[in-house]
Design a protein around this nucleic acid. Sequence first.
DNA 1: CTTATTCCCTGATTGC
DNA 2: TGCAATCAGGGAATAA
Length: 273
Amino acid sequence: MPELPEVETIRCQLLPLVSGRAIVDAWLSPEAPRLPAFPPDAGAFASLLVGRRLLSVERRGKYLLFPLDDGHTWIVHLRMTGALVHSSAGAVEDRFLRARFRLDDGCHLYYRDVRKLGRMWVVADPAQVVGKLGPEPLSEGLSAAALLAALRGRRAPIKALLLDQGTLAGLGNIYADEALHEAAISPLRPAGSLTPEEAERLCQAIRRVLAGATRHGGTSFWAYLDARGERGQHQLHVRVYRRQGQPCPRCGAAVARVRVGGRSCHYCPACQV
DNA sequence: CTTATTCCCTGATTGC
DNA sequence: TGCAATCAGGGAATAA
C-alpha cells in the first residue's frame, strides 16, 4: 500500500540509478493485461518506452513520473501491492513479476505486483493522469486556509475527505489515521465542522506524519518494498493504525477500530474529539 | 453537485 | 485437516 512516503522513498532511491539511462528492452506480462492503462495495448506501450532515455524521477501524490527524452512521460501507480525494484544483478524471475525493463547500463527495473492492481501510462501530457490531484502536502501547496476551503460545507467524515486525492494528494489509510490522531481530531467529524485552528493543526500533523514516515523509509505491514527490494521501518512507529485494543500513546485509552467509507479506521475515542 | 457502494485482484488469516 | 468466508485498500465506476 504505497502512499506518499513509500513512493517518495522509491523516487529518491531511483533518481541516481536511472537518470540519464535509456530503456533498451521492455517486457510486459500477458498475465497482467490491465497493467498498461494507456496505451492499453502492451505492444504499443512497450514500443513507446524502448529507445527512450529517462531524464529524471518525479512524484505527484502516489504517482511516480519519469519524463522521457521525447517529451512523453512514463507514469507508474503501484496501488496496493506493486513494487518497482532496481537490480544490477541478473534476472530475478518469480510468478508475480508483471513487467521488466532493461536499461543501457545492464541493470533492470522489475515491476512485481501480487494483486495486479497497479497501472502504468505513457502520455504526452501528465495532466491527463495527475491533473485532478489536490495539493502536495510536503510542498507549499498545502495550507490551512486551502484545506479549510476544501472542507467547507462538506458533511462527509473528515477521514473520507483526507483519503480523497482531489482534496490532498498522497494520503492513504495508514497516514490519514495517523495524522488525525496526531492532530487530536476524530475521523468521524463532519469535514465542514473543523475550525480554522483545527485545520491548522491537521495541516501540521499531516506534514509531520508524512515527513516522519519518509525518514523511516515508509511502512511495511504487508507487501511494500522499496526500490532496493527492502522493507520500510515506519510500522514500528505507528500510534493507532492496526493498534485497536492497545493503549493510546497520548492518553492511555483503548484504541478503537470502526469502518469509515468502507475502510478500516483506527482512532482514540477519548482524546480525538 | 454530493455521498455511499461495488468492483478489481489474490494471499493470508480466521472460523467451523 | 480442509474448505469457505473474510480481510487488506487505491481508485475508477456506478448508484442514489
